[in-house]
Write a protein that binds this DNA or RNA. Structure first.
Lengths: 112, 112
DNA sequence: CACAGTACTGTGCAATCCGAAGTACCGTCA
DNA sequence: TGACGGTACTTCGGATTGCACAGTACTGTG
């Protein structure tokens, strides 16, 4: 479809969303998935989140450590490092500017 | 790169941006390109805009007509039709919701 | 032991944006 | 006349990225 479906909107923003989900607390993939869905991103697929985490990790924005779990397989925790926080700030700013540009284009008619 | 570069942010929003650019006035590709760039989307490529216009047209959201020009080749004008306006409304709403979700995630700390 | 739930990995597909190159038309300047 | 720059559009191939699907592996329960 054309349409602005959430799938397409997510492109390029998922990185930012995942960084933001890790801002206050370390987390492992499955949990981050739940955080994002709870936050309103109902449609994120699990594979997307895991992929993003790996991408951010190889990009050097995350540290990782494994924690065994009592109730299932091990959990691979991810944590923001300095580069990650810098990324989060930068990308957050880019996002805000972009969003504001779009709102202007859309006519900026008041409230959501 | 990772990073939220505007290129990636545009994905899935360009349709909406183009629809918005046509809301008040018909336009042809080259002109819409200028409108978008003037609005702040400096980095849109021409091919993207032309491609989007064609996609929106085949999707049934735009009408089109050709106007010869005194100062160059013909211009293929595009105009929103009823379906296009409906799309614009719907997608605009989706965008606003999505943007608001993202802002929540980001911590919604005040100013742009 | 089968099964459901948790947690992660790998593969291949589809969508879409972009750069580059190409076509074509116009007016100007030499 | 011919070269050139600006306008306007098309086509092609490359690159990212999100997702569905399938598969691995560990846990506790019936």
């Amino acid at each position: 479809m054309l349409c602005v479906d959430t799938t397409q909107l997510l492109k390029g923003v998922l990185d930012l969303a995942v960084l933001a989900a890790l801002r206050d607390e370390d987390g492992y993939g499955y949990d981050i998935l739940r955080r994002l869905r709870a936050a309103g991103l109902q449609d994120v697929g699990d594979a997307s989140v895991y992929g993003t985490l790996r991408r951010l990790f190889t990009g050097g924005f995350l540290n990782t450590y494994v924690v065994p779990s009592d109730e299932g397989p091990h959990r691979k925790y991810y944590a923001l490092n300095a580069a990650g926080r810098a990324e989060l700030d930068r990308n957050g700013k880019t996002w805000r500017e972009f969003a504001s540009t779009m709102n202007d284009l859309l006519g900026d008619r008041g409230i959501v």
